[in-house]
Simulated scan of single mutants.
Amino acid sequence: MKLKMMYPYLNADIALIEKELARTVQAEDSVIEEASLHLLKAGGKRIRPVFVLLAGKFGDYQIDTVKYVAIALELIHMASLVHDDVIDDADKRRGQDTIKSRWDNRIAMYTGDYIFARALEMITKIEDAEAHQILSHTIVEVGLGEIEQIRDKYDLDQSLRTYLRRIKRKTALLIASSCQLGAIATGAPSSVHKRLFWFGYYVGMSFQITDDILDFTATAEQLGKPAGSDLLQGNITLPVLYAIQDQAFREKVENLFVSTNPEKDITSIIDEIKGSDAIERSVDLSNRYLTKAFHVLEELPPNKAKTALHKIAKFIGKRKF
């Protein structure tokens, strides 16, 4: 089942948000606007806006209010992608040229900053102090995650705890905030929006672990970028952490980092990771986070949104791209 089939009653609202995203990134500078629209048109699952809307269904749902949260969270995510591509020197994302590849690093950084500023402008439409505090904390944590990713590049001595903290900051908290802020924007009770935060957090951890698994198990066509890109860029993800417990494999990864032809060497490393127990162990940890998410979901009142959240969480755990 495709992701969009799990919440067909949101189609009109999602289409509205898509139009609003395009309108929001319009700029006086034609290059910044063109670059922003280039990223937007590359697509994406729009997971964060979907979580915002579904969480909003636990309160007094009004699309003209909750849309501002959905737009803001997606824009923050988009801005972080632009900055990531500069940090990682990435040429492709979702099968399209990155902004830094089509233009340059300077334009990419300005574009990311502009998109981020527009996100902050959107969230001011929500007059709730708690919502602003939550979003501010999330933005700080995302920034720390960016710094940690730079710091931890090529570091094969980092711990599992370091990795989990990094993906919490880089991915999970933004998804958790999407769930919580969607509920807050529609006046859902505190007991509900706090549970939605934890649901989103656990799903977000599973989502990123699955992404890191797919970097080795999916095809370049499915990924929209070469397989093994994360490792080539020096990002040590969960399957690698598990696999380098074997000393011989660790030495191969060390050699990859100093290789004059890493694109060629990565093929055998991918094959070894797929042939080891690293993928299975990574899937197991992802599933443990999903199990926690399902337990939290059971504590929420029943409605169509709860059913959709359950289906989406299952999809995230089983997806192949």
Rank of each mutant, 00 (worst) to 15 (best):
V86Y: 11
D271V: 13
R106P: 05
A12P: 04
D91W: 07
H132C: 01
A176P: 03
K100M: 12
R48V: 06
D230E: 12
T24L: 12
L309K: 00
V82D: 01
V66H: 01
K4Q: 10
L73Y: 01
D265L: 07
L196G: 10
K304F: 08
H193Q: 09
I139H: 03
E28C: 00
G59R: 15
I14R: 03
T171Y: 00
V52N: 04
L174N: 02
I17S: 05
R281E: 15
I126C: 03
I63E: 06
L300V: 03
G145I: 04
K170Q: 08
W103I: 13
L238D: 04
K274V: 03
G95K: 09
H295I: 12
L238C: 01
M78W: 00
I115W: 02
S80W: 00
D128C: 06
T260R: 13
R102Y: 14
E34Q: 10
Q158H: 00
V50T: 14
E254P: 07
G143F: 01
H193Y: 15
T217F: 13
I244H: 00
M1V: 10
D128Q: 06
K19T: 13
F257G: 09
D284T: 14
G275D: 05
D97C: 11
I126R: 01
V25P: 00
S259T: 09
Y9A: 09
M109P: 08
S259E: 07
Q96D: 11
D152S: 08
Y9K: 10
K318Y: 02
I99H: 11
M205Q: 14
T186W: 06
V69Y: 04
E251G: 13
S268D: 15
G200R: 03
A119P: 07
R165A: 07
Y201P: 06
D271H: 14
I99S: 07
N11F: 14
Y61E: 10
A248E: 13
R161W: 12
P189T: 09
S177W: 01
R102C: 04
F249T: 08
Q62A: 13
L39D: 04
E28F: 06
K304C: 10
P301S: 03
K274G: 04
S206G: 14
R195P: 11
A220D: 15
A308M: 01
A131G: 02
A108G: 12
D64F: 07
S229A: 15
Y7E: 02
P226A: 12
N11H: 14
G95W: 01
V31K: 03
T210F: 05
Y68S: 11
V52D: 00
